[in-house]
Simulated scan of single mutants.
Amino acid sequence: MHMELHENKTFSGFVLLGFSDTPHLLYLLLCFFLTMYILCIAGNVFIFILIVSQHQLHTPMYVLMGNLAIVDVFFTSIVVPRALYGLLSGDPYISTHDCFFQLFLLIVAGNMDSFLFAIMAFDRYCAVCFPLRYLLIMNRRTCICLVAFSWIIVCLHSTFYTWLASSQLFCGWAIQHFFCDYPVIIMLSCSGLSDTWQKVDLIESSIIIFSPLLLILGSYVLIIRAVLTLKSSQGRWKTFTTCSSHLTMVILLYSTVIFMYFRPSSIYSPAYDRAISIVFSIINPTLNPFIYSLRNKEVKDAMKKMLG
């Protein structure tokens, strides 16, 4: 079979080994995946409906939060239903087309999260540092342009990586994961990426992943500097409270991204990758709406109003 794959890369598909090495955890994993998926859908859809229905939340920050809720539902839905199907049916097979389509959607959704966080950080910077001009800067047209530009960038980025992965010659078919992720697919390549493509890979991925992070960090340095000049301690506390929920989500996202995609190859293990992937693709999108609703006074007030 290895020889056949080496001679002809147009084979029919891959095998997602997933959690096949832990059959004793089958029912526990089923309950966990299903519970987290229901919580993710319920939490994010509720936040989206809350933002749409409550007029006081029709501001740029909450419009961006609504976009984030939809992306998080999209992100988790790319991973969890297929994982649940594999656990319930015992069928590990995934066609080549479905695998690369899942990879494309996964890269789009994962990177869109970080771009939305960057736009939200810029929004907070404008609100804190330019309060009188805030609605002029972050108007409807600006928000639409920033979000549309982000979608274009992440789709182009994902197209490049999906093409790069799909153009490889594969000498294996068993993916040591529960979904089709870029690093585990490249590991099946007969020769791996050439030195040139490895450099392009590193440079391009670093720009796409860390540019939003640098914008977020730069925005918060300026925000903190502006907040420290406020004379009112109540004003400082309110600003820090509003920004802390956003920063918490950023830390959760980037800590898992760095551990997942920028860790030394010497510490690679399938179990390690699966654990980090669960946090990255399931737990983080589930926690995001709860972090915002529990730590944001305006959201809590809107919830009380909507619930009577």
Rank of each mutant, 00 (worst) to 15 (best):
L5S: 06
L5W: 05
E7Q: 04
K9I: 10
T10G: 00
G13K: 04
L17T: 03
P23T: 11
L26R: 14
L26M: 08
C31N: 04
F32N: 00
F32A: 07
F32P: 00
M36K: 05
I38Y: 06
I47Q: 10
I47G: 01
I47C: 14
Q56R: 11
Q56G: 08
L57T: 03
H58A: 04
H58C: 05
M61N: 10
M61H: 10
L64Q: 07
N67E: 03
N67S: 07
L68M: 13
V71R: 08
D72S: 11
V73E: 01
F75E: 00
T76D: 00
I78G: 00
I78H: 00
V79T: 05
Y85Q: 02
G86R: 12
S89Y: 13
G90H: 07
S95L: 09
S95E: 05
T96I: 04
F100N: 00
F100K: 00
F100Y: 15
L105Q: 07
L105W: 08
A109D: 06
N111F: 08
M112L: 15
Y125P: 02
C126D: 03
C126R: 14
V128P: 05
C129A: 12
F130H: 15
R141M: 09
S150E: 04
S150W: 01
I153F: 02
L156A: 13
S158N: 07
T159W: 10
W163G: 00
A165D: 13
Q168M: 12
Q168L: 05
F170P: 08
A174H: 09
H177P: 04
D181I: 14
Y182R: 13
P183S: 06
P183E: 11
V184K: 13
I186H: 10
L188W: 11
T196H: 12
W197K: 14
V200E: 13
E204D: 01
S205E: 02
I207A: 08
I207D: 05
F210K: 02
S211Y: 12
L215G: 14
I216S: 04
L217V: 15
I224Q: 15
L228N: 15
K231P: 01
S232T: 04
R236C: 11
W237Q: 14
W237C: 09
W237N: 13
K238R: 11
F240M: 06
F240N: 00
V250C: 12
L253Q: 12
Y254H: 15
V257Y: 11
I258Q: 08
M260F: 10
P264C: 03
S265D: 06
S266W: 06
S269T: 13
A271W: 06
V279A: 11
I282E: 02
N284E: 01
L287A: 14
P289A: 03
K297C: 01
E298S: 12
V299M: 14
